[in-house]
Design a protein around this nucleic acid. Structure first.
Lengths: 222, 222
DNA sequence: CACTGTGAATGCATTCACAGCG
DNA sequence: CGCTGTGAATGCATTCACAGTG
């Protein structure tokens, strides 16, 4: 969609579109830069950044070049400045994101409890579950509502991102409700393929696939 | 490692090496085939399989071709037979895998409780935690042991796969203990890069990165 | 005829390699 | 010098397109 194919001779702005893998690495850079910042490191070279993260220096430079020119020849990148710039590019500076959770089982509870989200500005505003026993309970400071209210709550709370941690059987239904409520992105933890309009970004985290892939390679090497 | 680079003129066996992405899709094929089998579907074409999973027919055929010739011209693939063959190729037929869990917090508990693992032959034999309060407790039928015993327990129970669900600060330490005990594969849920010998397969599942990537795209489209 | 299996073509992501800069 | 930023080269994964088959 929306192929950004403008002429590449304008040197001012980032020209090409960054791949999804590249965007994922941005998060890694931010993490490492945060670490370096607490250690009062002033400058870091692409080489050193790469070594720390298990990448190549060329890859680091290429990744960063998609978003602008941040470095200084002969010196490297100014840690604090690059950290700020990347945080902002990742949409994590000076703002928060509203998150709704569907499914407060073991996995859902783990997600609610994960401190990393809060720290990075992802705030759980809504949690729902199909189990009437759970409705009304307070989990990690969030009150669990009935799943029937999902669409309404998503709309009312201006939720940006929905997390699906319900059984496969109800995943698509819950997904539709999130979409109806106006979420713009979804992370799906259920082992099912979900249909969403192309305007909604969808990511899947599939634990079974991770293990099964490993089993494949283990089965190979005797 | 162990590059399977034998001559490609022997038509009997799969010639090229399958990519990791391809192996991950194998799991998807198995799932869909299982579903078709319960529906008593006898044959399925690459086209139909692809539609169900959101792939292209060419990709399905190419993926399967890495592992052999399973189809019949004009008919498609015999569901039951292909299901059996792929299950076996994934190392999930007639055998189980022993799994150890490090970290019985919210996420760890969710992993222990996930029924999908058991069903696919992944058996939790060991669980450890650093919190003395948790040691001795029975979680999902597994007794929690002290983290200090991890290496010993991994070795004694012939653990194949280790799951790391501990805080970043202790992730590398726990990883080293798993390796010392002889695991051959690790799934890391901590947001940290881990060092392992090249003989150990490592996969990372990073929840924060999933959300941050989404935030990037949301921040872009206004 | 409907389908597979696969060379060849394409399209991306990564890496190389180096001009240019501080 | 040491390092960035980036064209060009490489290496993969995906898709095309079609010969071959039951």
């Amino acid at each position: 969609m929306a192929r950004t194919n403008h002429r590449s001779n304008s040197r001012a702005a980032a020209s090409q579109v960054a791949s999804e893998a590249c965007v994922a690495r941005l998060s890694l850079y931010v993490r490492e830069l945060a670490r370096l910042e607490t250690q009062r490191v002033g400058y870091v070279s692409s080489r050193r950044l790469a070594q720390q993260l298990g990448l190549t220096d060329a890859q680091v430079r290429r990744d960063l070049s998609y978003f602008g020119q941040f470095g200084t020849s002969g010196l490297g990148y100014e840690v604090q400045r690059l950290h700020e710039r990347l945080t902002s590019i990742l949409g994590m500076a000076d703002r928060t994101w509203n998150v709704a959770l569907a499914g407060v089982g073991n996995l859902g509870s783990a997600l609610l409890a994960y401190r990393g989200f809060q720290e990075r500005g992802f705030l759980f505003r809504v949690a729902v579950d199909a189990d009437p026993q759970k409705v009304g309970r307070l989990v990690q400071g969030v009150e669990v509502a009935a799943v029937q209210r999902l669409t309404e709550l998503v709309r009312r709370n201006h939720i940006h991102i929905g997390l699906i941690a319900v059984p496969v059987a109800s995943a698509q239904e819950v997904c539709d409700q999130l979409v109806a409520g106006g979420v713009r992105a979804i992370v799906n933890f259920a082992p099912a393929r979900l249909e969403v309009p192309s305007s909604v970004r969808l990511r899947a985290v599939d634990l079974a696939i991770e293990l099964e892939s490993l089993a494949f390679y283990l089965a190979r090497n005797q």
